[in-house]
Write a protein that binds this DNA or RNA. Sequence first.
RNA 1: GCCGAAGUGGUGGAACUGGCAGACGCGCCGGACUCAAAAUCCGGUGAUGGCGACAUCGUGCGGGUUCGAUUCCCGCCUUCGGCACCA
Length: 810
Amino acid sequence: MDFLAIEKKWQKRWEDEKLYSFDKSRMDKKYYVLEMFSYPSGAKLHVGHWYNFGPSDSYARFMRMNGYEVFQPMGFDAFGLPAENYAIKTGIHPQDSTLKNIATMEQQLKAMGASFDWDYEIKTCMPDYYKWTQWIFLQFYKKGLAYRKEAPVNWCPNCNTVLANEQVVDGACERCGTTVVRKNLTQWFFKITDYAEELLRDLDKLDWPEKTKLMQKNWIGKSTGGEITFDCENGESFKVFTTRADTIFGVSYVVLAPEHPLVDKLTTPECKAAVEAYKEACAKSSEIERLSTSREKTGAFTGSYCINPANGERVPIWIGDYVLYSYGTGAVMGVAAHDERDYDFAKKYDLLIRRVIRSKDGSDDSLPFCDYGVMVNSGQFDGLTTEEGKTKVVEWLAKTGHGQLKTNYRLRDWLISRQRYWGCPIPIIHCPHCGEVPVPESDLPVKLPYNVDFKPDGKSPLLKCEEYMNTVCPICGRPARRDPDTLDTFVCSSWYFLRYPDAKNDKMAFDPEIINKMLPVDKYIGGAEHACMHLLYARFFTKALRDLGYLKFDEPFTSLVHQGTILGPDGFKMSKSRGNVVSPDDYVSKYGSDAFRLYLMFGFSYVEGGPWNSNGLESIVKFMERVERLVKRSIDLGDKDGAFGEAEKSLNFVRHNTIRRVTDDTKQFSFNTAIARLMEFVNATYKYLDNTKDSNAKFTRDCIEDLVLMMAPFAPHFSEELNEMLGHKGSVFNRSYPTCDQKALVLDEYELAVQVNSRMKAKIVVPVDADENTIKETALANAQVKQAVGNMNVVKVIVIPKRLVNIVVK
RNA sequence: GCCGAAGUGGUGGAACUGGCAGACGCGCCGGACUCAAAAUCCGGUGAUGGCGACAUCGUGCGGGUUCGAUUCCCGCCUUCGGCACCA
């Protein structure tokens, strides 16, 4: 068969017949399959795209053949840093390069033969899409979910520009090598923390990989404890968050984050120089470095003291970079005796170390002692356990206004401002008289201007575009300026799944009537690297839009699957710099897209991925040819009915077992084993035809029909062709998936293993309905078993029906 | 460093909920067909020892629980994903 020719033939026919158009009248049978859309950074599809889209398309086709009205759209996450960097390097405008890349990718995606419905395509960089991204921003703004505050960015003092984390290499600017510092800018945030509790709680409802749910859970990072107020000697006060209020009588010092606003007020003149130097040093280290537990703890004394509200002691106030201003209150109490970090810190700076918790059984007197225990040296609380003490102490402090029980989350509000050009403009106008004014909805979209100088020179590119920046205030009509920043591209990708089913709507972001029927997404497929960010942001958007009244569901993605990563042949991640990038095009043009897809599905565990190896590809082609020969052989045989003897019964067992297994495996995205079962079925059919005189032509034909139907999702063009050879009119994808006949799977007897002292000794055959006693006796009567037992005593016989017998002897 | 995974023959990978480790492929070895080759088909293939029936070992390393561990627990090693401005 000429694989390349038939691919063209069927792709044309699919397109002419609009085979994959979503039929709205069957919405009650909808099944929304969504692959994470791609970022058009390179011009061509790489193996990773194929690995994401090919197998998931097979899954979509499988669901279609099982009677679902499958909705499988495709689009592009088109804004973002790479296009802008490319533009800076080459001078090619991001819009031009992006649209060109998209056009190429569209062609390639079509050539892949996936059943996407292109009528619903989305490109996030087009005004008809980002108009609604802006609209959502405004709804969030109105609801108080979007606000501005100061936050640090990576700043290159030489290029005078903000850098992405990716552009900071070993603390230095990737372009010029200058040491990067942290600098505060006023930026927009989404208040995702308002939803921390619900985002955490609803994880239980989701059919997602457990590891992903666990990662989100840890990312949200709920902890319960107390907020304790320390009064300073100069009249100021600050709060610390602690989960171990029971240790408060052991506080030896407190540490503020270097960025804490009180630091300047608390620093005494004699400590000023040291504190300033320390703060400057901190501006150079990244958060990951600061949080590293293996790094030496450092700090600087402010010269001031505060009062321990529990015992009235004077406590020195330090600053230290292991305290982050963005977590908790930006201040912690140091209890040297009962925390590793605090212990190291106190040792280094020679601070008080006082034990206030002893181990429960009194046996452990080493320090630091970080476990739960019993309070000592703690006044009236002596003798309480940690569990009791941590609430009792806070409740007691609350009486003097110095404590409050508190739940804290590690999750932070989402910083959405970007000082870049290639993104969605923020629909806010800054008026000297009226302040921050949202753009009226009737004025959307705020269009991203084309003629902009996006070279980095210290200012947001849009800031340099006067015709964009200058506008009038919607309230007072006087001259005003637009917000010069753009939105994080994660904002665009946090709602695209809502736009797809109503992608052409120019009156609203989406029609709730449609969306409430089409969503949630039934199966979402994409990389595990999105576990904590995109997948959390999309959940947040869904919940926020629900509370705004636009949706009636709580979660965007009911079921989630992560595909693995295909690595280069050398076992490393594919990258241009390593030179280990495998191009699918060469293989596709040689073997065809079906063979390529089939190989990706058979050669790897979908969830794992692994290093690329082209050896298996030719064997897949051989398998396809083997199937083709089998189909032809059946056609030559005709369809005359014949006897249904043992041979037929046996093949029929394999046939229906294959249907059962392939169905189950495909549902679980276990494509490699599904295809292995198809191979077994093909082998068994060959054996039947080769070894049976007067093989039953009609029965053979039935088997072949099932085979072709089962092959169809995995090798769509190939199976269409075989289906046509078998005399069917119309697409194989309009036929129904075969169903398993349970009667064919009923056997009279089965084989089970017998062990003696857990070592395999024999196999016995027992009737299907044999009880434990019969199985036990059959096993003990077996000659090999008798020999293995010899003259030892049988201590115990473990019988697990359908599995094995284990005879324990002494 | 922190959070989350993965590690199984020469090789890609199987193994349901703790129950016959290595399904299905690739490769390799042997055979059939052929003048020959390719293609195709058949058989074998974890390691070690033994003529053999068999025996012992074997799922990254070291311990443990269990009649029984690739699977559960404890401690390591290596690799990968993420760590909030790559998406």
